[in-house]
Design a protein around this nucleic acid. Structure first.
Lengths: 139, 139
DNA sequence: TACTAATTAGTTAGGGATTACCTAATAATA
DNA sequence: TATTATTAGGTAATCCCTAACTAATTAGTA
């Protein structure tokens, strides 16, 4: 019982290590070592809300519009987002993620994808199916 | 093949969700919603280096001693660390983690432990052994 | 219909609190 | 005299604000 737990702990630590190596890889590819938690959070919010404008982002994050302008200017300088003017209304600009911005916003997800690929390379078909059946049961 | 991947992705997302629920639980137990990444990093460094003094922590983190004094004062106010004067040398104080400080420094680890307990509750002995055998192969 | 008035979207200007660093000087101990 | 930690004073960046502004659009009215 206790031995099993120890085993599982080591195995999952290994998986987590692989995953964080992958996500570090993603971040260092973006060469943004001093990005802040807030900035990452803004990028995720932009990623999750399609067609987001300055006013809308201010609303979602419950900040003032000048705060959003400032934050977006910063993220533009970091090459994570850009402004796309609305075709139909000259007052409106949409905030879009660049490739780099999207990479950062989805780093967790992408790292997980890489871990799964590693997993699929290491195991045969039957083992993968077995793994799926077992882990499905965890709630 | 692609279906397996999709399955695995959903299953691991679920595990990660469980884990981050656990670690959020740990953090909210500590009632420290506005702790910074730097502060967490200092706590981890203190946890990993036994008998660490102000000078030593300055050396490890490559900061000046006044920076360390200030940071430790902040962490003391947050009840995450305390000073323990050295018995043999009145100039020296060791930096020790409080229960709360240790909780935060090891949140990841503790969350993983909770996930594994959940896993062991959901699976029988044979399944656990099978899981260990399969996941062992991932490198 | 055309023109003014009001509204809306985003920006600028100026400011404040906090974090996280620094050097120089100082106090206490070895 | 050397070492450990602290105090004093300062800087830069982040992340937030209000008030005032510009430009674009919409509504109201003559």
């Amino acid at each position: 019982m206790h031995e099993q737990k120890e085993h599982l702990f080591l195995i999952f630590e290994n998986l987590i290590r692989i995953k964080s190596e992958c996500s570090c890889g993603i971040f260092s590819e973006c060469t943004l070592s001093d990005i802040t938690l807030k900035q990452i959070h803004y990028l995720k919010t932009i990623d999750q809300n399609k067609e987001v404008t300055f006013s809308r982002l201010a609303e979602i994050t419950r900040n003032s519009k000048p705060t959003i302008t400032e934050m977006i200017n910063k993220l533009v300088r970091m090459e994570c987002v850009y402004r796309e003017p609305c075709q139909h209304d000259g007052r409106i600009a949409y905030i879009r993620l660049t490739g780099r911005g999207e990479m950062i916003a989805r780093a967790e997800q992408k790292a997980l994808e890489q871990v799964i690929e590693r997993l699929m390379d290491s195991l045969d078909d039957q083992e993968i199916n077995l793994l799926i059946e077992i882990l499905k049961k965890v709630r």
